[in-house]
Design a protein around this nucleic acid. Structure first.
Length: 723
DNA sequence: AGAAAGTTTAG
DNA sequence: TAAACTTTC
């Protein structure tokens, strides 16, 4: 498809530091090779990169396009500043979600984007221009149109580091340059560009700690944040009307209505959140951040995702605060800043990883992990999504995620670790679900997080470690408040049993009104069964890895060999659309088909494609959608190993007691009880399901409402093929 | 002092 | 889980 061997080099120009006015980074992204086992050190396995100093005279006099993407702010926005310096400015936002492949933004994320754009527009209006919004399926040709209709002569934009953007931006740069347009791009998203942070041999780091140490000891500081422009001279917009962009459909509006009660998108509000955090929870951050149910985190992640808040500003403010506290001998404060900075560092690292390993959202970084026999079980997947695993902390988390689009960092770790290690579902599914549901969905961060949890990173979690949700429950939610909020059916269970109801004596359960297997599930998989299964899977993984290696060494291409994957640099999953089409034709039993395949598509996408543009409204249609979702595509073109594991004895709950999610009528969040939680003096509304009739309708919504605009989404099948 | 046992912490 | 760190004897 689009990333293949012979992938073209691309050029990124970047304004880095005053002493180095401009660096043009010429980056040859070779196809990614996964590091091989054992864990590689400093192999420089991905890219060559060379920096070339060039001097630009400031372009001025003309009219510039400033292309906004994930830098939706007017302060500390170098692209905007450059436009303002050069003369007239045309600010553009292009909504072209088809370009994102299957990472079409989820409902809550689109809600945020919509608010953010409208606030950006009003800020721009105050400064003298406005935001031109365009609906397109191809940003590059759309930019060309805007340029033609406005007579602009240059284009400024901020860098993105996900593989799709890297490719698109490179193409854009070529096309526009060929059309006589001057194109310049800037770092607005990171403290340091990925190619600035290298080890002594000039190679990228492959562990976070080393990376972050280097960032903190760079010989030059991240650039200081810039103030917003005082005034913008608008270019001629008369021939360049905005398109109306539809970010949410009718069915989504109700669910979105409550978001505004807890969140305020936009760069100004991002700044408010930043100072609220810095003047409040930051001081105790290192102590408090471990409580699942408290508002002690920064709540900055959605602002950061959309670039409403500049990380450089965050960084500089934090450092100033830290110096202040250090002078006062406030060691707790100093430590808190370090801990918080580390999470900023992880965000940096996610971009770094995405840049150096363009496939990191698709496949494990560690090579042998691609031989892990994931359990392809949509029943598990569904139970996880609906919060019906029988592990209260996991279930509470999943319910919160669905209801609010938000999850405390700790709980993200808990639910994802459970997903990968206990259920052994392919991590990409979980990642995709996070992408679809999180308010701060961020491809790079989520890829890093899931890879970390899955043990597919050189410095990830131990692979054979299974975290115990019961123990974690008592760690992060010692009084069970979090569980009780999100699992009303357990609210009368005493603390002693709240995180392991399956151990509770019958009379306790009765007193609490709980009938396990009926109104709350028994554990979907018992932990010792999961451990045994994990060990077995690991053994298989190593066998297959060894077999594959042996075959490669013998130079044979027969049998097990998936030489195309293992030996040759890897292309992005090839022929994804064909793969999907084939899949829709295949009918397989719903339950427990277990296959070895490392690169599954996400089930929701499957059903989406199989449903086509059809409106699904009747319950019948819902069932069909469910059926067609049964199979997960197998990429036969790439991987030949396809094996069926016989499932060890596992306690699987067959009747959950919950009505099937698909047949429930949606209890829209508007009927939910609204509570509130403290956040920095102010009260932030939080909605929780009403105790009386909580139903989980997440699944049908996930498939039907989430992607209700499927007719728009579908076009990713028609992505331009440049390979 | 030094081993053993307990505690904390990890994205 | 497991390794690092702290406390106890």
């Amino acid at each position: 498809m689009w990333l293949q061997i012979g992938y073209p080099p691309f050029v990124i120009e970047t304004h880095t530091s005053p002493s180095f006015p401009f660096l043009a980074a010429l980056v040859f992204l070779k196809s990614s090779e996964n590091p091989s086992h054992p864990i590689p050190r400093k192999q420089g396995y991905n890219q060559e990169l060379c920096l070339e100093k060039r001097v630009f005279e400031d372009m001025s006099g003309g009219c510039s396009i400033v292309w906004f993407r994930r830098d939706l702010r007017v302060e500390d926005n170098p692209a905007l500043a450059a436009g303002v310096r050069a003369g007239q400015v045309i600010a553009v936002y292009i909504w072209a979600p088809e370009e994102e492949g299957h990472y079409y933004p989820g409902r809550v994320s689109r809600w945020w984007l919509k608010q953010s754009l409208s606030l950006l527009d009003s800020s721009l209006r105050n400064l003298g221009t406005s935001l031109v919004t365009k609906r397109s399926t191809d940003s590059v040709s759309c930019l060309l149109e805007v340029i033609k209709s406005t007579g602009a002569t240059q284009l400024f934009f901020s860098h993105l580091y996900d593989p799709l953007s890297l490719v698109r931006d490179h193409r854009m740069k070529e096309v526009l340059t060929d059309n006589g347009i001057a194109v310049r791009s800037f770092n607005a998203d990171l403290l340091y560009e990925p190619w600035e942070v290298l080890d002594d041999e000039g190679l990228p780091f492959d562990t976070f700690t080393e990376f972050w140490d280097r960032c903190l000891t760079m010989p030059y500081d991240p650039e200081s944040p810039q103030l917003p422009p005082k005034k913008i001279i608008s270019g001629d917009l008369s021939k360049c009307p905005s398109d109306t962009i539809i970010f949410e459909d009718e069915s989504e509006k109700g669910s979105n209505a409550l978001l505004a009660r807890a969140w305020s998108p936009g760069w100004k509000n991002g700044n408010k959140a930043l100072s609220a955090f810095m003047n409040g929870p930051l001081l105790e951050y290192s102590k408090n951040r471990r409580k699942a149910d408290s508002a002690t985190t920064s709540f900055l992640s959605p602002h950061l995702h959309f670039g409403e808040v500049s990380v450089r500003k965050v960084f500089h403010l934090l450092r100033m605060k830290q110096v202040l506290w250090a002078n006062e001998g406030n060691t707790a404060g100093v430590e808190s800043v370090n801990v918080f900075l580390k999470s900023i560092g992880l965000r940096e690292y996610s971009r770094y990883m995405s840049f150096n390993h363009p496939y990191s959202h698709e496949r494990p970084l560690l090579r042998h992990l691609k031989f892990f026999p994931w359990i392809v079980d949509e029943g598990y997947f569904k139970a996880w999504r609906q919060g019906r695993t029988g592990y209260p902390l996991v279930d509470a988390g999943m319910r919160e995620l669905w209801a609010t689009g938000w999850l405390h960092d700790r709980i993200r770790v808990v639910v994802s670790s459970f997903f990968v290690k206990v259920l052994q579902l392919p991590w990409r599914w979980g990642m995709k679900y996070f992408w679809d549901t999180l308010l701060d969905a961020d491809l790079e961060s989520d890829a890093l997080g899931w890879q970390y949890i899955s043990g597919t990173l050189p410095d990830g979690r131990e692979f054979d470690r299974i975290d115990n949700p019961q123990f974690e429950g008592y760690k992060f939610d010692p009084n069970g408040e979090y569980v009780r909020r999100w699992l009303p059916e357990l609210s009368r269970l005493p603390n002693e049993w709240i995180h392991h109801p399956w151990d509770a004596p019958e009379y306790v359960l009765q007193a609490a009104g709980i009938e396990l297997g009926s109104n709350y599930p028994l554990p979907i998989v018992k932990l010792d069964a999961a451990k045994a299964r994990l060990q077995e899977a690991l053994t298989q993984m190593w066998q297959h890895e060894a077999a594959s290696r042996a075959i490669l060494e013998n130079g044979t291409e027969e049998g097990l060999g998936d030489s195309s994957e293992a030996a040759a640099p890897i292309a992005f999953p090839q022929n994804m659309e064909i793969e999907m089409d084939e899949n829709t034709l295949r009918a397989t039993p719903t339950t427990t088909t277990i296959r070895h395949y490392e690169d599954q598509m996400v089930p929701s996408m499957t059903s989406l494609l199989s449903r086509g543009d059809e409106e699904v409204s009747s319950s019948d249609a819902g069932i069909q959608a469910e059926d067609s979702r049964a199979e997960v595509p197998i990429n036969q073109g790439v991987v030949d190993i396809e094996m069926v594991r016989t499932e060890p004895r596992i306690d699987v709950i067959t009747t959950m007691g919950f009505p099937d999610g698909d047949h429930l009528q949606a209890e829209s969040s508007s009927t939910s009880r609204t509570g509130s939680r403290e956040r920095d003096g102010g009260v932030v509304p939080v909605w929780s399901p009403s105790t009386s009739s909580f139903t989980v309708d997440e699944d049908s919504s996930y498939l039907q409402m989430q992607h209700a605009q499927s007719h728009q989404l579908i076009t990713w099948r028609r992505l331009p093929q440049t390979g």
